[in-house]
Structure formats: structure tokens, C-alpha cells
């Protein structure tokens, strides 16, 4: 049986840009799929096709068991969407925005107001609830948009970079909301540039580039594909690098990476923490002073870089926020 979100051979071109080039997806009910990929990979396009906003040139899409191309209006009853760019009315207050969405879901005016109040609390917007959204900061708008996507609890949700622009506290809070939703049986397709987020939330990960799926699997499977653990060490004196390499050779599985300017030596190993203790003892006997040493496992960032051949272009704001969060 196909999952709650199912796509087969989706193709979408814009002029001579092929945004989707035969994408297949299958997300089992009640799970989270993390859709990763560099800028321009086609993530947003895939979300827009699956949420009935654009028609693909070719392919098949089924959401919550309903054919997206044949019965878009029925699909709209079964989905919630938070797009990459906040879809709120700037001149309406946060409360008015949310109750409008509630009423368009056929709630009574009173019901819609009550739900708006609940969401404003949950997304830390109660203080700004009665100000026009125009006066909101970027992160506040983002949260208002997410709240609008959760006015009802449809069985399938799509979130396109939901935490971009959120501060660490609000990101954490959204993660909790997402985990609650999924615990309640919601199926979620989530795109993100924060690989840590995919690691944390997604059951399955799908990496796309140039409109094609280039890898899929659980986070652990993808990491295993990229390579096992390794020792990274930083020596105190640059002239100790060759000596350190010599010491490490018997422990390694072949292949060294040396970064001269940071005085760093990276050696793929297998043997875990015990091996690390031995390495440290040996270095000590040889009188090599070290600034830092550690056993590292590949991160999703490593997976991403090795798969797409370039660093995840997270953008400056992202980097700043990661910095501020630590």
C-alpha cells in the first residue's frame, strides 16, 4: 500500500530549468520525511506540486490516498501547508489572520477565535496578537504562518524550511510541536537546511539535487554510507605533524587528511573509545603535545557534502543563528 505521501516520476520544468526531474517519494503514514538538498534543488517545487499549488508536467502524486492531479480540492481537506515564505496578510493582526483561516476551514466565528487564541499562546505570539503582522519580526511572521498551518490538524502536513529564521528557543518549541503532531499520527514532509534538524525529527531522509533523488534512507544509513568513525587531533606545534602521522599509522584504516593551517590530522579508524585511549597514551610517550583530540562520527553535513559535492548553502542568517545558539 502506498504511504500517506506518494509520488512517482514527478517532472516539472520552468522554461529551460528542470526543477523536478523524475522524483519518487513514499512516506509511510505517521512518519516524517526530511527532504534535503542544496538551494535550487527542487524542494519547494516538490512541496508545491504535492500541495496542489502547481501542476507537474508529468508524474503521479497521491496524498492521503487521494490523487493530487485529479482531485485537488479533496486533497486540500487533508493537508496543511507552511510554505517557505510566510503566507500571512500584513495588514491583519495575528489573531485576525488565524481566525480568517479557521473560518475558511468552515469553523464558526467563535470556534475560529478560540483556536486562534490557543495557537497564539502556543507560538509565543500572545503579546503581539492584536498588532498588524506588518509590525512583526521575521521570526514572528514565520511562527504566525506555522500557526496558520496548524489551525486544523489534517492527517498530512508539509513544512518548507519551517525553522529558518527562528531563534533557538522557538526552534526547540517548534520541534516539540512537530513531535506531538507525529505522535498523534500526522504524516509530515519537512524540508530543511539544518541537517541537525533532519537528524532529530525525520524517520527517513531523502536528498535531492538538480531535481533528482540522489540518496535516501535513515540518517544512520546515510552516515554509514559516507564512512565510519575517525580520530581528529590537533597538535600544539606544527613541526609535530609528521610525527603524529607516524604514531597514528598503525591505528588507522589507511588514508590520512592533514590540515596544515589548523594543525589537524584526521584518521579513519575502527575501534571506538578504547582505541582513543591507546592513541593518547602513545602520543604522550612520544612527547607530542596535543591541543584537542576526539572520536568523530560523520554528521549529516558530511553526508550532504559528500553527496552533493558542495557545502549546504545555509545562508548567512543561518550561520549567525547557529553561532548565537551555541
Amino acid at each position: 500500500m502506498p504511504g500517506a505521501i506518494y509520488a512517482e516520476g514527478l517532472v516539472k520544468t520552468f522554461g529551460d530549468v528542470t526543477a523536478l526531474d523524475g522524483v519518487d517519494l513514499d512516506v509511510p503514514e505517521g512518519t516524517v520525511l526530511g527532504l534535503l538538498g542544496p538551494n535550487g534543488a527542487g524542494k519547494t517545487t516538490a512541496v508545491r506540486v504535492l500541495t496542489t499549488l502547481i501542476r507537474p508536467d508529468r508524474g503521479k502524486a497521491v496524498v492521503a490516498g487521494i490523487d493530487v492531479l485529479k482531485k485537488p480540492n479533496e486533497v486540500r481537506h487533508a493537508i496543511g501547508l507552511s510554505g517557505q515564505f510566510a503566507a500571512v496578510d500584513e495588514y491583519l493582526t495575528g489573531r485576525e489572520n488565524l481566525s480568517m483561516v479557521g473560518r475558511l476551514y468552515q469553523m464558526s466565528s467563535r470556534e475560529a477565535k478560540a483556536r486562534a487564541g490557543e495557537l497564539l499562546e502556543r507560538f509565543h505570539l500572545a503579546d503581539a496578537a492584536d498588532r498588524p503582522a506588518k509590525t512583526y519580526s521575521g521570526g514572528m511572521r514565520r511562527r504566525l504562518d506555522l500557526a496558520a498551518a496548524l489551525v486544523v490538524s489534517p492527517p498530512v502536513m508539509f513544512m518548507d524550511e519551517p525553522t529558518t529564521g527562528l531563534d533557538p528557543r522557538n526552534r526547540q518549541a517548534l520541534w516539540e510541536v512537530i513531535q506531538e503532531l507525529v505522535a498523534g499520527g500526522t504524516t509530515l514532509l519537512l524540508t530543511t537546511q539544518y541537517l541537525e534538524e533532519a537528524d532529530h525529527l525525520a524517520h527517513d531522509i531523502c536528498v535531492i539535487d538538480h531535481g533528482k533523488v540522489i540518496a535516501r534512507g535513515t540518517s544512520d544509513q546515510l552516515k554509514a554510507r559516507t564512512g565510519g568513525e575517525r580520530v581528529e587531533l590537533v597538535v600544539h606545534e606544527r613541526q609535530h605533524i609528521p610525527l603524529a602521522v607516524e604514531v597514528m599509522r598503525p591505528f588507522g584504516k589507511g588514508g590520512f587528511t592533514v590540515e596544515e593551517h589548523t594543525r589537524k590530522v584526521i584518521v579513519p579508524v575502527s575501534g571506538g573509545a578504547r582505541l582513543l585511549a591507546e592513541v593518547i597514551r602513545e602520543l604522550d610517550t612520544r612527547g607530542i603535545e596535543i591541543d584537542d583530540i576526539g572520536l568523530r562520527r560523520p554528521t549529516l553535513d558530511d553526508v550532504f557534502i559528500s553527496l552533493t559535492g558542495h557545502v549546504a548553502e545555509a545562508g548567512e542568517e543561518t550561520l549567525e543563528q547557529e553561532g548565537a545558539g551555541k
Binding site: L53, R76, L81, A87, V88, V101, L104
Partner: peptide, 11 residues
């Protein structure tokens, strides 16, 4: 962006 909200709702 608001039009995307409208178009994704069962209106």
C-alpha cells in the same frame, strides 16, 4: 505569499 495559503485551503 497569502495566495498560496488561500489556494491550499479547501475554499
Amino acid at each position: 505569499g497569502l495566495i498560496d495559503r488561500f489556494r491550499s485551503l479547501p475554499m
